[in-house]
Design a protein around this nucleic acid. Structure first.
Length: 601
RNA sequence: GCGGGCGUAGCUCAGCGGAUAGAGCAGCGACCUUCUAAGUCGUUGGUCGUGGGUUCGAUUCCCGCCGCCCGCGCCA
């Protein structure tokens, strides 16, 4: 898809190539720093060197040679030392950008580079029989944002919640409920109780509870019991299956409330259990290929496997000596299943950094077995969240932060701020909208906290920052959008609209010549590129950065230039169109990150 | 030991081959009878972990070292 800035770049490169002075591979343009008054630049060093000339001289000659018609997108062409600077033709630029937005509306910024290829994003993936905590929120939020971005780029997206609903821990869960009884109730509290029973059993198994006259025998017995329930579950024992199903159903119901609040939606939730009957073929396949070996004890191991970079990977297991399968086995089975079923071009795993090795092994094994040849397997790994004092969060230490409580807290804080603003006469809001606004703002702050920076970084939990409503934060972005809407309401006498540019009076974009107006236009024009870069780098923060810069530029425009009281009706109409285009673009960007865009705040 | 991630302002982070290294927060000082001050402006603050190398040019690429986090067979 070609947007205005694409055309700008294309026109310059074409003109450069036409001069015959620069080979096509040296016409790479770069964006000068904001402090310089140019929109694109060509560094002439390499081209000059190739022909044995002086870069500054070449820049000068090119500046003298290049000609663009008055109605072109390219305006001034100037040499500045060894750089050749190009400036947008302000008169043409505004109309072109606003035209792009009017044409695209809620799809402005989208692209077709995904070309309907299928991409599967696996994210959230909480464990059954446990409450979701801050660790899961990262995967959930990052994954949803990536999914939105990739969908905007034209990919056929499939979101999959790869639930942790299988494995040895359910043996322990079942054993603990057989021993201590099944918890009553149904919600988050019942999940917490299951966790407590699990931990209690686990401690006894490890002999950490010296409250009874436990002997080592008992510990061994408890361990055998858990292991045996795990195997019974794999073999379809009715009691085991019933308890397991009960845990799964309840967990899904509880989690769904969190997903609803976060605006997260899954096309499917195939947990690990879904692949349980597909693991045996994986093991056989690996053995037959000679990549895996069965050890005398019965365990199946993979040795001497290398990753794509040629690094030898540590040995890992596909089957336990007691016959049970492992996470690794199921993940390879998952790769094979997805390939058979969906033929994806890309599969993205939004999973914490700690599992980097696990995925390198799974990917390498799948490739070694000849699978996923045409599939890009990507582990988008994010950093760990630490407590305020820098300590790891853990249930054992009792410093765990649960998702539901976090969202409640964020909403409550946002609500307090909303009421404070109303009380101070800063805003007027219909009472029935207050809850929705508090929710949009509070949850937006939490979501944005996970998206505004490169996801690879670790995060130290800081409530003040996480729920910050100032500076580079979701509420600031939402506030800017609300200000745009406020102007549109005044001028157009209308409230909500899917198309914020609908019903604008005729306007002449040529009139938008002030630097503040041009700066906003330039930012609007950059959205498509931000979306492309975010998708290519699997980096939602690129959208966040675009949003923030756009909001800042709009704030400057807002401060200096009045829309409603513009000097002439023509100028007012043009600025109104600029506001509408800003609002539409901001909303598109907010939606890509999964953030709500309230029209009043 | 091997492998992965990260070291940029007091704190949290952008920038990752080009022209004086940018934001937010915190600090200091301004600006609301004006389209919402959840805002804006000014100001203080940097040997870009460190030592080499490549290059006309390195915070950015390569190599060594140091520091922090994480991972490395029967958990997920």
């Amino acid at each position: 898809m070609q947007y205005t800035l694409d055309r700008f770049t294309h026109d310059i490169r074409a003109a450069l190539e036409q001069t015959g002075r620069i080979p096509a591979d040296l016409t790479e343009l770069s964006e000068p720093k904001a402090s310089l008054q140019a929109d694109l630049a060509l560094a002439c060093f390499r081209a000059a060197k190739a022909q044995g000339g002086n870069p500054a001289k070449l820049a000068q000659e090119l500046a003298a040679t290049l000609q663009f018609p008055p109605d072109a997108l390219v305006g001034k062409v100037e040499a500045s030392g060894p750089f050749l600077n190009f400036t947008l033709n302000a008169g043409q630029f505004g109309g072109a950008v606003l035209g792009d937005v009017i044409h695209g509306v809620e799809h402005y910024g989208d692209d077709d580079l995904g070309a309907s290829k299928t991409v599967i994003v696996e994210y959230s993936s909480p464990n059954v029989a446990k409450r979701m905590h801050v660790g899961h929120i990262r995967s959930t939020i990052i994954g949803q944002a990536l999914l939105n971005i990739l969908a905007a780029l034209g990919y056929h997206t499939i979101s999959d919640n790869h639930l942790g609903d299988w494995g040895k821990q359910f043996g322990t869960n079942i054993a603990s409920m057989i021993r201590f009884g099944r918890p009553e109730g149904n919600g988050e509290a019942a999940l917490a109780e299951i966790e407590r029973l699990y931990q209690r059993y686990n401690r006894m198994m490890k002999g950490e509870n010296a409250d009874t006259d436990d002997e080592a025998d008992d510990e061994q017995m408890l361990d055998d019991e858990a292991r045996s329930w795990s195997l019974k579950l794999e073999q379809g024992d009715p009691t085991a299956r019933e308890l397991w199903q009960w845990m799964c159903d309840m967990t899904l119901r509880v989690n769904q409330r969190n997903y609803d609040r976060l605006g997260v939606h899954f096309d499917m939730a195939h947990g690990e259990s879904f692949y349980r009957d597909m693991t045996a073929p994986v093991i056989e396949e690996a053995l037959a290929a000679g990549i895996a070996m069965r050890e005398p004890g019965g365990a199946v191991v993979v040795k001497d496997l290398s990753d794509e970079r040629g690094h030898e990977l540590p040995t890992f297991l596909l089957q336990r000596s007691d016959g049970g399968t492992l996470y690794q086995t199921r993940d390879v089975a998952t790769i094979e299943y997805r390939e058979r079923e969906y033929r994806p071009a890309i599969v993205i795993y939004v999973v914490e950094q700690r599992q980097e090795l696990h995925f390198r092994q799974a990917f390498a094994l799948a490739k070694a077995l000849g699978h996923a040849r045409d599939t890009q397997l990507v582990h988008v790994h994010f950093g760990t969240i630490f407590g305020a004092n820098g300590e790891p969060l853990s249930t054992r230490k009792g410093n765990m932060v649960y998702l539901e409580a976090l969202l409640n807290d964020a909403e409550a804080r946002a609500r307090a701020v909303v009421l404070e603003k109303i009380g101070a006469g800063k805003t007027e809001l219909p009472p029935e909208e207050i809850d929705a606004i508090a929710s949009a703002v509070g949850i937006g702050a939490v979501v944005y906290n996970d998206l505004y920076q490169d996801v690879r970084r670790n995060i130290t939990l800081d409530w003040e920052r996480m729920l910050a409503f100032e500076g580079n934060s979701a509420p600031y972005l939402q506030y800017t959008f609300a200000r745009c809407c406020s102007i549109l309401r005044e001028a157009l006498n209308r409230d909500t609209s899917a198309n914020l540019l609908e019903g604008l009076p005729p306007f002449e974009a040529m009139l938008l010549r002030e630097p503040q107006e041009q700066a906003v236009l330039k930012q609007i024009a950059r959205l498509p590129d931000a979306v492309r870069r975010a998708g290519q780098a699997f980096a939602p923060y690129i959208i966040a950065e675009w949003l923030y810069t756009t909001a800042r530029e709009f704030a400057r425009f807002y401060r200096d230039l009045s829309v409603l009281k513009a000097a002439t009706p023509e100028l007012r109409a043009a600025r109104l169109a600029l506001v509408a285009a800003t609002a539409q673009s901001l909303r598109n960007g907010l939606h890509l990150l999964g953030l709500a865009a309230p029209e009043r705040m």
